[in-house]
Nucleic acid binder design. Structure first.
Lengths: 225, 225
DNA sequence: AGCCTTTATTAATTAATTGTTAATCTTGAA
DNA sequence: TTCAAGATTAACAATTAATTAATAAAGGCT
């Protein structure tokens, strides 16, 4: 479900690491670049959903980078957030309409960062990949109607089961660790036991048949035809 | 198995006790200190895996303590989590600048605490080098799906075997000593006998065929086409 | 509101898989 | 040829997941 791509651009490796780490933990796919030029190359290739762009960078600064990105048609739906130190001259940034969608201030606080990123992406809503329905073999998912189909026959799933299946199917074959599942479906704050996941998995298997969801012991679960 | 060392630092004995008790119950080895100075002394001596540091302390506060700890080379890999009252001004903490890896909020709820600590420590283990997929001759590795392929045919490997093969294949031809293998796959904490590696190697050879993994007697093992 | 139904979570038990060790055998380098 | 390093095997231990049933929480409906 939450497999949005995020590109982080900063010249300080430390920042890349902590921001990247915290977002990865939440299940996002993270790319990093340490200068404007590189970031544009990656952005073109990966088409991220969100780009977090440090304002202060040597050579090509964040605003310039942003400006160039905005002229790339494939990136016209991409969100861009500026990363800037508190107290840096806001007026200049704000005044210059480079097309940023939001601001994040340093020093970066993990919780704040994560919830902000979630908020930004939520705002974007419905668009791209996130909401794309998947169909794998006999199982199809309809996120809009919140139902799934098995061989064309509709099956109703409770919320948690639906989201779990949704996550697993969002990239068939890929193993999702319990940690990622937890963070994605329950969020960082809620704490539920490990067995809870098992039980939901079991219910899914009951309804879909055993062959789809596979256990990778010691690692996690994956969906496979 | 779970014998990670945790150092808890707080000026309130109550907190030390409740946190310490709950972590001991989970099998961790717990040390306590009631001020920054003492905590640094203990940290140097015991080299804990995780330090839980109260932000608000008389004399040397959590941030200052954290900062000093970060300058001690033996504590480079130690995780530090801040303990702070919910609602305390986060911006004042500027946690990541001082090098904290996570936050825990008071009041401490045992279950939340324990699972959070587990998560933090698990993370540490998982951080070890994000290796990329390789393909050598007839054998290909797919870390995302957690499978390997031999001539396109998928083979499922248990975790340890997968990681072992993964390591050997990460640089084909290179010999990995037992020591390196141990440290990479089991980590410094766990101690297992030498034969254990042999057994895993054997299982791999059974599944892949003998020709890929070569023994370099007196030195280690290597993967070769 | 109170009742009923569905969904979510937990706890306790069982089952399966995976990991480790110990004991013995084999091999190859000095 | 000798002998330490490694291979092999099977027994055993530990870990992890599956299952079941019970309980709690949420939602719907008169």
């Amino acid at each position: 479900m939450k497999k949005e791509k995020i590109l982080i651009v900063d010249d300080e490796p430390d920042i890349l690491e902590i921001v990247g780490y915290n977002l990865k933990k939440e299940g996002y796919t993270v790319f990093t670049a340490n200068n404007g030029k590189e970031s544009i190359k990656i952005a073109k290739k990966e088409n991220p959903d969100l780009i977090i762009l440090d304002v202060m960078m040597p050579e090509m600064d964040g605003m310039e980078t942003c400006y160039q990105m905005r002229n790339i048609s494939s990136l016209k739906d991409t969100l861009i957030a500026f990363l800037s130190a508190r107290g840096e001259d806001y007026s200049q940034i704000a005044g210059f309409d480079a097309g940023a969608d939001d601001y994040i201030t340093k020093p970066v606080k993990p919780r704040v960062l994560v919830s902000k990123v979630k908020a930004i992406l939520r705002r974007k809503g419905g668009t791209t990949s996130e909401e794309k329905d998947v169909e794998v073999g006999e199982i199809a998912i309809d996120r809009e109607r919140y139902i799934i189909k098995k061989k064309g026959k509709e099956i109703n799933l409770p919320k948690k089961e639906f989201e779990l299946l949704s996550l697993l199917m969002s990239k068939p074959g890929r193993v999702y660790t319990r940690e990622v599942i937890m963070n994605t479906i329950w969020g960082g704050e809620v704490v539920v036991g490990d067995r809870t996941i098992d039980v939901h998995i079991r219910k899914l298997r009951e309804k879909l048949g055993d062959k789809y969801i596979k256990t990778v012991k010691g690692v996690g679960y994956k969906f496979e035809a």
